[in-house]
Nucleic acid binder design. Structure first.
Lengths: 582, 582
DNA sequence: CTAAACACGTGACCC
DNA sequence: TGGGTCACGTGTTTA
């Protein structure tokens, strides 16, 4: 009874969640939760460039100093519907000036929930509820109790509550602020958050006063500020240039933003098959080589500088096909943990039967609190399961207060155990990360995980070997493809898959060669499909081969005007082709 | 001083090794060791078929009941010289009848070493020396202290000592028994092991009385028995048919026996640049799903059945180019750990710059000792480094006797720590195994290993993604190829690399769509290439899309007659098309 | 209730 | 001489 169960929402939970998130959000989440049966996986791959853009919008004062930025990424459900799910996000606590400027409503708003929470109740109950709500969301959307991140938070601020809860939302086209924005393809500038979204209550609680939704090619960018900001078209231009396809400046330009969705498990409830399944893994980013870092205090610090704010970013699990390779340089980034993060993003795609989970990680890049003793509990299921009556950690061994570390002075023997703690934690961190990238984990214990990882690596190696040798029989392809790290020596085997079903006929003075191949895998398959959908008939088709390129030329005809046809096609293709970059 | 250093052989060590292995072997090893500077890597790829053949010769009574079989695999040094190195091996303890039949000399022979070991000394000193010798060999040939396997052995029998020590030998052409045999290309049948090899002393110690060396195409097969066996040509025929290339009956028939050698590091000493670098990883094979298994007691059991013997097999690391695929069915063997082993064989080939090590693994398939308390120490560097004066572990906490477990009666508190020990050990085991399959390990600590493994997995996934999408553009090959475990469900998403460079032009009354895509990945690329090679010009090309197929039609023209052109094309394509099956 | 799994503190060791 | 890693024994939790 103490530990909340996954699927079911009992009344107490409902009221609690409603109190924290607001009634509309509660309803929305409950209908979207679907008892964890139908999960939406792999809501597209995001990479650092997206994250950088978002954090740029949030932290870079040259832009607008938004308090948060969320990219709602377009995803496609099994039934073909598009759904906007959490793509990436970045938030920061409002500065003191901002809090003053915003009219002081930030604090305490949350206590005006559905149930009348008395104002005099101190943080304790509120914090407790927030954590429990986050935990409930976590488990409701498929997370396991162990890796619940909420209890790793020292304290959940209003902003964080809004932000963290937002991760669990997803919006079908036309629903919610992002869904409406994307459906209308027009940006929305809310000077009041009263009804911009089902998350309005939460936004209000966080003191957000201005919210802007901007549609992009693959999703919706949501920006929010605690200040009242006038509509600003320069921002829109900036956003457009940042998030449009052609102007992607990412060096890696590899991971695809293009969404993919697999509906795993039965899909019996048809409400909305867009259910994110965030599994939050808290990670500490020891940038550089400093070996000690505050664990995961997402909370704003007492004298919050403008940078010590969490950056939440999602990684993709599930079978998201993400573009090409993601640049070895990125993979072998010198920074260990950072590397893990990055790599967690490009996941899987390998075992569709896997119980994949959307994986989020909290990056504490900016958390520059140098305290070495505030080590909030993390990964302690006993805390997660315990009935957290008071906010004070019931854990005896770390009697840390909630607010600040006692700045203990260099206890040598203490340092050892602390270092050891950190080592263990880092190891566990890696284990989590490994769990994220290895599909088909037989058991959840570490040894099995390692075994599965080894097996998986070998499996991948074997597959790669097979494919590589297959491909190399194909001849010249590898020679010009620089990224194809092919061992060019064993060229001699001929295993390639040929153009199947080649039919050759010789008539009087010419030979006709007919090749039939699967539409699925043909380069022009999407084109043909589009033609069909748009009821476009192909008048003439040609194919020419140059040095290393094949040119298809199609002369087509459709019902409407030619310009309209062209625009239609352009629109259709633009969506496809930019899956290449980003 | 207590811990043996890697490269150097101090006098004490020399005498000890000489005592255990014999003087000639000592000299041989010292000259071949080369201070670990010039290591011979990747001495060819072996696979289960080889292992099966060997174990067949050893364990299958229908053959000859040899006590051990070693395949000395031909390798090529940097300078072009061929060297016979440890390829694969299999051994078993002699049965009791065999021991009787062999004249009783098996036991105690070792004590007639260089230094006069008094016979009355019990196992203690001998076992201690053997382990230390194995450790010395292990480190001398580049193994790290941590993964020394010798201390994982409960007890090193004579046979095992001979067998395990043999792994560190390698023979230039003409040197040693295998080297002479291969040089002469004639088999050798020794009815006395006195001088069949530099390992004669060891062989004698193990009671081996008959040794046969048979040259094969890529190495030398060495068989030994504790019995005196008359020359037998049927055996030779069997061996020839087993190990010759053409008659390989292995179903996989994939892994190349062909050796390759990379000489890593400087090669300043020119004695013999063939130095194996065995890094032995002890692995327990929990066949089936039984989750508990005796750890690694290589020793023969008290009532040794005929199957509980170790099978040592080598895996290939390094950039050995080994053949095609090795049969998915093998890869996806249901047995988890076994799979790991198998897969460890098809290793690497990925990071040739990696500090590769020849990796051996001991397969305890038959080790059916059900004792769960004989837990030999393994991976305890402090033990390895400690000066083990007596065989009794100077470690206080494991007062286990040497010979047999005391059959402790369910000590509850003891059992806990024992279980925990085992858990740790299993974990470390996996870590070792993971280290074996992950190239480019930045640091040797666990966290880094995990990070590297994650990075590597992602890298592999990314590569596979790229290749898969590349391959899928190649046409319907996957549709009829059952083994291409393509996730057919998410066929509908357009994850595919889209037709890039779509150019759309609208003219007066028609729209032209031009698609240019890489020739490499186009289904007809091979066709076009063939056209070009055959100087065939395409008169007309058409493309039509049916339900799920795209039809290319080419009307072509070439110089010669049409029938000849047709035949030429058919010949060209037939070579491709039968690549479908495999 | 047992067995497995994990986290923790501690001693040791190694640059 | 300390920062870092490791293994060990132990207490606790979970299935």
């Amino acid at each position: 009874m103490g530990s909340t169960k996954r699927m079911l929402w009992d009344e107490q939970e409902k009221s609690m969640v409603g109190a924290v998130l607001g009634g509309r959000a509660l309803d929305f989440l409950i209908t979207n939760c679907l008892s964890n049966e139908s999960v939406l996986i792999g809501v597209g791959a995001t990479d650092d460039s997206l994250q950088n853009k978002l954090s740029d919008l949030v932290e870079n004062s040259s832009n607008f100093n938004w308090n948060y930025a969320i990219f709602w990424q377009l995803s496609q459900s099994k039934s073909g519907d598009y759904v906007l799910g959490w793509g990436d996000g970045c938030c920061r606590e409002p500065s003191e000036e901002e809090e003053q400027e915003s009219g002081g409503g930030v604090k305490g708003i949350l206590s005006l929930g559905m149930e009348k929470n008395e104002e005099e109740q101190e943080d304790g109950v509120k914090q407790n509820m927030r954590k429990r709500v986050l935990q409930k969301l976590h488990t409701a959307f498929g997370g396991s109790d162990e890796d619940n991140y909420a209890f790793g938070l020292d304290r959940v601020t209003d902003t964080e509550m809004f932000f963290l809860a937002s991760m669990y939302f997803s919006f079908p086209k036309g629903y919610g602020g992002p869904g409406k924005c994307f459906a209308s393809a027009k940006h929305l500038w809310f000077k009041s958050v009263s009804d911009y979204c089902v998350r309005s209550f939460l936004a209000k609680s966080a003191g957000i006063q201005t919210v802007v939704l901007v549609p992009t090619d693959f999703g919706v960018l949501e920006l929010g500020s605690v200040r009242i900001l006038p509509e600003n078209f320069e921002l829109l231009n900036t956003v457009n240039s940042l998030f449009s396809i052609s102007t992607s400046t990412s060096t890696t330009q590899s991971s695809s933003l293009y969404p993919r969705v697999i509906n795993e498990g039965r899909d019996e409830s048809g409400i909305s098959n867009a259910v994110q399944l965030p599994k939050v893994v808290l990670s500490l980013n020891n940038n550089g080589r400093t070996h000690f870092r505050e664990k995961l205090a997402i909370r704003k610090m007492d004298h919050s500088s403008s940078i010590n704010f969490p950056i939440v970013r999602n990684g993709v699990c599930g079978s998201s096909t993400w573009g090409v390779n993601q640049g070895q340089g990125e993979i072998f980034a010198p920074n260990g943990v950072r590397k893990d993060f990055r790599l967690n993003n490009n996941n899987s795609n390998y075992q569709p039967q896997r119980q994949v989970q959307m994986q989020m990680e909290i990056d504490f890049t900016g958390a520059n609190l140098r305290a070495n003793s505030v080590r909030p509990v993390i990964g302690e299921p006993e805390l997660a399961a315990a009935d957290v009556e008071a906010d004070q950690p019931s854990d005896g061994r770390r009697p840390r207060k909630r607010g600040r570390k006692p700045a203990n002075g260099r206890d040598e023997p203490l340092n050892h155990v602390e270092a050891e703690r950190q080592r263990r934690e880092k190891l566990n961190q890696r284990f989590y990360a490994l769990r994220a990238v290895v599909p088909n984990i037989s058991k959840m214990d570490k040894a099995s995980l390692l075994g599965d990882a080894i097996a998986y690596i070998n499996e991948l190696q074997a597959k790669l070997n097979v494919m590589e040798s297959e491909r190399e029989t194909f001849g010249s392809s590898t020679s010009k493809d620089g990224s194809a790290n092919s061992r060019s020596e064993n060229r001699h085997q001929n295993i390639r898959v040929p153009p199947p079903d080649v039919d050759i006929e010789a008539s009087k003075d010419e030979v006709t060669v007919k090749v039939s191949c699967s539409l699925d895998t043909h380069p022009v398959s999407k084109l043909m499909e589009t033609f069909k959908e748009a009821q476009i008939s192909v008048v003439e088709s040609k194919l020419a081969a140059a040095n290393d390129t094949i040119y298809h030329t199609f002369v087509i005809k459709s019902q409407g005007s030619e310009e309209l046809t062209k625009d239609k096609l352009i629109a259709a293709f633009s969506r496809e082709s930019n899956a290449l970059q980003i």
